[in-house]
């Protein structure tokens, strides 16, 4: 049994906002919202301790519904705003919710540099393989050959692997899950928020309205059943041959390591500067 009851979600919602929320019926963002709130409550965080930052897109609406400090920023710059908030008030827990276009296209530069700097942030990247809000244009994570509004005969570029990208860029914690694996998602969000350093959770979420319709994937039910079929646990993924990995993806914790965070290394530089001033 979970220590925190599921009913905690209702205590963290902003009830003066219009409910039901703006997302399409069956959208994974609602599931992620509940999961995030449960992870925060499980971690014992206070509402005043937490800041949610988001960019533009469907995922940008997420912090609006949670009763914590929230910033809805410009497209792709959610991580830059979050960096400023964290440096100004290091005691706050800053959580950034971005979409795949937000994180890897317009904010791709900020993502790799935030991971390299290893600032104590948590980035939740909702990957629906398309630009859902603007009508289903292809994004950097759209798979090769998939159809999109701007690629009606199939996409001609290979896609980004967000998790592999952030592992290479130097993030402390990288995990991937889907909204279908909701209990696992609760745990991973909790781990990522607790982790000191840059935590990335890539959440695969169905966009049946745009991506699913154009690629004939059916409703969100079929897409979520597809996640169930395609997702392979990390331990099993390592044993699979390249042929078996075709069309599947690994879920689980991809990287969990101890790197010095930006605040620690910066504090070291401050101390060295003060010591140099005292001597000189």
């Amino acid at each position: 049994m979970p220590t925190v009851h599921r009913s905690v979600v209702y205590d963290w919602l902003r009830h003066d906002k219009k409910f039901p929320h703006v997302w399409c019926p069956g959208c994974g963002l609602g599931i992620l919202l509940g999961s995030l709130v449960r992870a925060l409550a499980e971690g014992g965080y206070d509402k005043n301790q937490v800041v949610l930052v988001s960019g533009i897109g469907c995922s940008g609406r997420l912090p609006v519904y949670v009763d914590v400090g929230s910033v809805h920023t410009t497209h792709g710059r959610a991580l830059t705003f979050a960096t400023g908030i964290k440096l100004a008030k290091p005691a706050l827990k800053v959580i950034v919710v971005m979409g795949d276009g937000d994180a890897t296209a317009i904010g791709g530069n900020h993502l790799i540099h935030a991971a390299r700097r290893n600032l104590d942030l948590t980035a939740i990247i909702v990957n629906n393989l398309t630009y859902g809000m603007t009508g289903g244009q292809y994004s950097p994570t759209t798979p090769l050959g998939a159809k999109a509004t701007t690629a009606p005969y199939g996409h001609s570029e290979p896609s980004f692997d967000i998790s592999a990208l952030t592992v290479t860029a130097g993030a402390s914690f990288v995990a991937r899950s889907t909204v279908y694996h909701v209990t696992q998602l609760d745990q991973m969000l909790g781990q990522a928020i607790k982790k000191k350093g840059f935590g990335v959770v890539e959440v695969l979420s169905p966009c049946h309205t745009n991506y699913g319709r154009q690629n004939r994937l059916g409703s969100q039910l079929e897409m979520m059943k597809g996640y169930k079929k395609q997702a392979v646990r990390m331990e099993r993924w390592d044993k699979l041959s390249p042929a078996e990995r075709e069309g599947r993806f690994a879920v689980g914790v991809l990287a969990d390591r101890e790197y010095p965070t930006f605040l620690e290394t910066y504090q070291g530089a401050v101390e060295r500067a003060l010591a140099a001033r005292r001597e000189g």
């Binding site: 009851h5 599921r6 009913s7 979600v9 209702y10 919602l13 409910f19 039901p20 929320h21 997302w23 019926p25 069956g26 959208c27 994974g28 963002l29 609602g30 599931i31 919202l33 509940g34 999961s35 909204v179 279908y180 909701v182 209990t183 609760d186």
Partner: peptide
């Protein structure tokens, strides 16, 4: 088990307690 509650994107269903 509460799976319906956790997979509901709209928080429209609860199990085991009443609101």
């Amino acid at each position: 088990c509460g799976l319906c509650e956790m997979l509901c994107p709209d928080f429209a269903i609860t199990v085991g307690y009443e609101k």
